[in-house]
Amino acid sequence: MDIQITANIRNELLLRNEVEFTLTFDGATPSRKEIIGKLGALLDANEEKMALDSIKTHYGSRVGKGLARIYDTPEARARTEREYLVARGQPKAEAEE
């Protein structure tokens, strides 16, 4: 999996960087957790401060375009990010019996 940053725009009002990237991969589309981990390592950012918005791939293609947001603090992410986007890619809690 290879990630190239195509745009990195600073949004001071919401205390975040808005990152557009191109993803090249072999096989199946990587999971959101893998993409966040690789993007965090590439940009030296903590996963608690990141939110992966979208990944778009064309049928049969090994290239995708994505959008992620990297916040200054986890509190800033919690304040502005939609809960379902934060919950995506997280391990599911085991059902209590």
Rank of each mutant, 00 (worst) to 15 (best):
E97F: 11
A45I: 06
I5M: 03
R16M: 03
G60D: 05
E34Q: 15
A51D: 07
P74R: 07
S61P: 01
R82I: 04
A78Q: 14
E47M: 08
L23T: 04
L43Q: 09
T57A: 10
R77W: 00
E18D: 13
N11W: 03
I70L: 05
I55E: 04
P74N: 04
E20W: 08
T6R: 10
E81I: 01
R79S: 12
A87T: 07
E94D: 12
I9W: 07
L43R: 06
D2V: 08
K92A: 08
L43K: 10
Y71M: 07
S54A: 00
A51S: 14
S54M: 06
I9P: 11
E47I: 11
I9S: 11
A41G: 13
A41M: 09
N46Y: 05
R77K: 13
D44A: 04
I70V: 11
R88G: 11
R79V: 06
R32I: 00
K92H: 13
E18F: 00
R82D: 07
K65G: 00
K38H: 09
R88N: 12
V19E: 04
G37Q: 14
K38Y: 00
N46W: 00
M1C: 10
L43M: 14
S54N: 07
R69A: 05
G60A: 08
E75R: 11
M50C: 11
D2A: 15
I35S: 06
M1R: 01
A76G: 10
I35C: 11
A7R: 14
T29K: 15
S61C: 09
M50H: 07
E47R: 15
I55W: 01
I35N: 05
E75F: 04
A76I: 02
A7Y: 09
A93L: 08
T29Q: 15
M50D: 04
Y84F: 13
L39G: 05
L42F: 06
A7P: 06
A41L: 07
G66V: 01
R77T: 00
E97R: 15
L52V: 04
T24V: 14
D44Q: 12
H58Y: 12
T22V: 13
E18Y: 02
I9G: 05
K56W: 07
I9K: 15
I9L: 13
E20S: 09
V19T: 02
G64C: 01
P30L: 09
A93D: 06
S54C: 03
H58R: 14
V63M: 12
D53H: 13
D44K: 13
G60T: 05
L13Q: 14
Q90H: 13
F25M: 06
G40Q: 03
E20Y: 08
R16T: 01
E96N: 09
L39H: 00
D72C: 00
K38L: 12
I55V: 13
E47G: 13
F21R: 02
L43H: 07
I70G: 00
L14P: 05
L13Y: 15
I3H: 01
L15T: 14
R10V: 11
L52P: 07
A68F: 03
E75I: 00
G60Q: 02
T80A: 10
T57Q: 12
G89Q: 06
